[in-house]
Simulated assay, not measured.
Amino acid sequence: MMELYQRIRKRREELGLSQEELAQKMGYKSRSSINKIEMGENDIPQSKIVQFARALNTTPAYLMGWEDNPDQKEKSPAEAEDLVNGDPELTEYLEELRTRDEMRMLFSITKGATKEDVMRTVAIIEALRREEEGR
């Protein structure tokens, strides 16, 4: 199984991007940061995974190794709007997915989840909220 850093390099090469070009897209000062990431020498903060996925025109789930197709793309807000037929609650949820990286990551990793997986995750989040309220 490929590691995150290997998937980043593979996807960059598939797109024909140089390390310098990816560095620019990511806001790094030089290609050496990308080189170190691709060599597995530098860890990537969780917050950067979504940014890498966008820069590499793929999903965080692909980079993490949770799905195999790097070309799976999310629908544009206009396409998503057509799917929800103006349902205000779904429209609001889709806007959160579009604008909040942490929501996007959570959604991405739950794509293949079973109902039981989702229910366990909800229980964990609720327990964390109760714990915070008790502090």
Rank of each mutant, 00 (worst) to 15 (best):
M105E: 14
M103E: 12
E116F: 11
G65P: 07
K10Q: 14
S32G: 05
P60W: 00
R7A: 05
E3N: 14
E41P: 05
I34C: 06
Y93P: 07
V122K: 11
L94V: 00
V118W: 14
T59Q: 09
G65Q: 02
K10C: 06
K75Q: 10
R100E: 15
M119D: 15
M1E: 15
D117Q: 14
N35Q: 09
G86N: 02
E14I: 07
P60Q: 02
S47C: 07
G112R: 15
Q51G: 05
Q6T: 05
E74N: 10
Q72E: 11
W66D: 10
T58F: 03
E13H: 01
S30C: 01
T59P: 05
D117A: 09
R120T: 13
G65M: 01
Y28M: 01
G40I: 00
E89S: 14
T58N: 10
G112C: 14
S18V: 00
D71A: 08
K115Y: 14
P77D: 06
E79H: 02
R129A: 08
E14V: 08
K111T: 08
L106E: 07
Q72I: 10
R54D: 15
E13K: 03
R104M: 12
S33L: 01
D117H: 15
K73N: 09
E81C: 00
S33N: 08
L128R: 14
R135Y: 07
M1H: 13
E102V: 05
M26D: 01
K75D: 11
K10Y: 03
Q6R: 05
G27E: 04
K111H: 15
M1P: 14
E41D: 11
S108F: 03
N35F: 03
E74W: 13
E67Q: 13
S33T: 12
V84A: 05
L22Q: 00
P70D: 11
D68E: 10
K111E: 14
P77V: 01
R129C: 02
R129V: 13
M1I: 11
Q24A: 07
L17H: 08
W66E: 12
E41F: 07
S76C: 07
R98Y: 14
L17M: 13
L56D: 12
I8F: 02
T59D: 05
L128A: 09
Y5C: 04
S108W: 11
L56G: 08
D43I: 01
Q46P: 08
G112P: 14
A113F: 15
G27P: 04
L83C: 13
Q46W: 06
A23M: 04
R9L: 04
G27F: 03
E3F: 10
E14Y: 07
S33H: 08
T121H: 09
A23F: 01
T99D: 07
P60V: 01
S108A: 14
L128K: 09
L83A: 12
Y5T: 08
Q24H: 06
R9S: 07
